[in-house]
Design a protein around this nucleic acid. Structure first.
Lengths: 246, 246
DNA sequence: ACAATAGTGTCTATGAGACAATATGGT
DNA sequence: ACCATATTGTCTCATAGACACTATTGT
């Protein structure tokens, strides 16, 4: 069976496929999905199944799986499909994080995963029953994850924090309409340190990435202007970082 | 034959490998190798073979090839091996660039490549006979490359230029000893614009990334202090970019 | 002395950090 | 009026950009 499937793929158009006749690594795609929930940064994890031959039974892992050469046109489409299947989100911020491949990361054999990195707004309720949002206190996850997913997650958190210093990425974690203090709070959650109100506002407003809507957020105090992301959601790169506090 | 090779990989430790019984994408690693030669940024390309069943015969391509599950412990080792085979360099700057995978990028079937990005000093003479250093006038390559290697190369150039704005990466393109004007020249070659001498020197020297050696470069004018990279070659990130000229 | 390049200093503009001051709603 | 939060303003500091100036070699 394996031979037939592989042979069909190999022998299609070429007379002498000798050079393709060697074992191929497994190919997977995994997605690190971040969202802000309950005032903290969270990552979506799924529990590994416990069937026979399944590696890391019951362990928590990044959502992902094998590339389906029939269904997936390319890697990004595969990542988008996995994100959609788990969260229903179709138009997120999705970027490639990197790839991890080695002889030992999967007990089933030499395998390589293409890791992606998604930012989505808080989606309210419904999740697949095997999925959960895990908080990341101090930018770390307590639990050990399946495969090398702990490494991949750590890399994703580092990349997110690093980019938040000088880009508009947190905008993709916001709901459709939000205030400047809301946005600042999200920056502070991700960076885990307070930012200066005044400098923050100057920077965001001069970046020309958001526009006011004709509404105010009302509460028991002075109302705040509501904004939304401008169309053409390309992330903005600032010329200077928020100065780290050493 | 194909079935036997695949079966050996699959059936090793598990009783019911049903879930692995599907076609696997091809897995390759490609390396974008940059160096400065003759006062210009160059990339190392190799010519595709012309045997039967070979895709893109005679076309130029990035050095790379299939992951060898017997020889390569992991992806980085595979990339380092390919770099070593083509250039003899063993201790370069090597980082992951990203991965490209789709049903159509290789006529032999669904394939994914893990692309790496290397910076090496100019190595003087000897190259494999199928390899050549191509200049990149204006940050572009005239020739069409095999597969999607043109896209990969363009991404690598963009990443290099972007990082050069705020990191010490060009240091890895320098020979063991170099002067500050030498280093500035390399920055200018990569960025394709002149930089201010004074600001450049202040920035590099305060970054604590190089140290003077007890020698001067002599010429028909004032001698220049020679420097070398400090040990622990981690790249330095500056807190501000060189201001782009808009 | 002169050419040529190495290296330093001076002045200005920009934007962050600190923090004070003001604005505007609900109660 | 008072509280709480939003929004703006003021002052200082660090660093890039522009550009002038000084230093040191070979010829």
């Amino acid at each position: 069976m394996a031979g037939e499937a592989l042979g069909k793929d190999i022998g299609k158009d070429f007379g002498k496929p000798r050079q393709l006749d060697f074992p191929r690594p497994l190919t997977t795609v995994d997605v690190v999905i971040f969202a802000i929930r309950d005032d903290s940064l969270r990552v979506l994890l799924v529990q590994r199944p416990a069937g026979e031959g399944e590696p890391f039974p019951h362990a928590w892992a990044l959502p992902g799986g094998f590339v389906d050469v029939a269904k997936d046109r390319d890697l990004a489409a595969c990542a988008a499909r996995k994100l959609r299947e788990k969260t229903g989100v179709t138009s997120p911020y999705l970027e490639q994080l990197g790839s991890w491949g080695s002889a030992t990361r999967d007990p089933r054999g030499w395998s390589a995963t293409h890791a992606y990195f998604a930012l989505i707004p808080d989606q309210g309720g419904e999740l697949a029953s095997d999925a959960r949002w895990f908080p990341l206190p101090g930018g770390r996850l307590k639990d050990k994850l399946a495969f090398d997913h702990g490494d991949i997650l750590a890399t994703a958190i580092q990349r997110l924090r690093n980019k938040v210093e000088y880009t508009s990425l947190p905008a993709y974690l916001m709901p459709a309409e939000f205030t400047l203090p809301d946005l600042q709070r999200v920056y502070e959650i991700v960076l885990d340190r307070p930012l200066e109100k005044s400098a923050f506002r100057t920077r965001i407003l001069s970046a020309d990435m958001i526009e006011p809507v004709a509404k105010m957020r009302r509460g028991p105090n002075r109302p705040a202007q509501l904004y939304r992301l401008k169309k053409g959601r390309a992330p903005v790169y600032f010329v200077r970082t928020f100065n780290p506090p050493e």
